[in-house]
Amino acid sequence: MNVTERIKDQLENNPVVLYMKGTPDFPQCGFSAQTVQILDACHAKYAYVNILEDLEVREALKEYSHWPTYPQLYIGGELIGGCDIVTDLYTKGELSKMLAAADAIAE
């Protein structure tokens, strides 16, 4: 599988994917950390990719999504945004609805 196929595979097989710096337990950047906190506050079920350990995906996803920074949150295969937009959607109460629609909230 080439890198684009790997990205598509990740997005098709997981309703919610967070591409981040570090891991949810040990985020390596404040913006990734904040995004994890918000997803946890929503009780979201999500997959993550640590782009610091996958340099191929790190570069390729920027081109794929026309989005040059991390974190990047995807729901249903679609780019939702970075930390800014995720925070904005969360404070408006929309993020929980989007996660619920993707069946990605833990019981």
Binding site: F31, H66, W67, P68, T69, L79, G81, G82, D84, I85
Partner: peptide
């Protein structure tokens, strides 16, 4: 929102690679 950010990133081009860590 995503489209707005993408327009801005596009306008800034290569600056996002080095000079700007977070916007």
């Amino acid at each position: 929102l995503v489209q707005r950010h993408q327009l801005i990133y596009k306008a800034l081009g290569d600056m996002m690679k080095h000079q700007i860590h977070a916007l």
